[in-house]
């Protein structure tokens, strides 16, 4: 068996904010009726996290559940447990219209940390990432420069970004470029 590696292989850049590849990370795409009790129960049982509301993300330990669209969730978990969790979801939801797929290798997960991490994001996305509009617990799908990406805040100084694996290098490089020391715009007031 070949070893699983992330697209960026753990690369780290330290600018005025730190941009770092998280490495292999478990992700499950779950589609279905998010309002259904059966799906809510299955997600809670598999991840320990309740289905979050619109544009929210919930976390418990190593697991997270992110609201992607009115009928889609992105479940985050350790890379090794994604397979078992996918099977558990599929078994729990058998008989209902749903899709649960292990998409761990489909995306790259990058973490941007540091007091000025909002500056880095704000340079690249049209989404409002000010402290008034974007706080821990929020989840936003938008774009970073020319490609789609989603991001959420792990805490007040850390934002995590997911993008497709095929554009991982591009996203890492634009984040890196936005975090070059001396390029702080000072606009986010941090």
């Amino acid at each position: 068996m070949s070893n699983a590696v992330s697209a960026l292989q753990g690369e780290v850049y330290k600018g005025f904010a730190t941009v770092a590849d998280v490495g292999p990370s478990g992700m499950i795409a779950l589609r279905g009726d998010l309002g259904a009790a059966k799906l809510k129960g299955a997600v809670k049982k598999a991840t320990g996290v309740a289905v979050p509301g619109m544009r929210k993300a919930g976390f418990a330990g190593d697991n997270g559940v992110c609201w992607m669209s009115p009928d889609e969730l992105l479940i985050l978990c350790p890379y090794e447990s994604a397979g078992d969790m996918t099977t558990a979801l599929q078994e729990a939801l058998a008989g209902t219209h749903h899709l649960a797929a292990n998409v761990s290798d489909a995306r790259a997960r990058i973490v941007v940390s540091g007091g000025d991490m909002r500056e880095v994001l704000a340079k690249l996305t049209p989404a409002d990432v000010s402290a008034a509009a974007f706080v821990p617990g929020d989840f936003r799908r938008s774009r970073l420069a020319q490609v789609p990406a989603a991001f959420w805040m792990a805490d007040d100084e850390t934002v995590e970004v997911v993008c497709f694996r095929s554009v991982a290098r591009y996203v890492f490089d634009i984040l890196k470029n936005a975090a070059i020391p001396g390029s702080e715009a000072g606009f986010m007031g941090t």
Binding site: M54, R55, P70, P126, A127, R140, R143
Partner: peptide, 11 residues
Amino acid sequence: PYCGTDADETE
């Protein structure tokens, strides 16, 4: 109307 964001043209 589906995700409640004010999306700009580029999105």
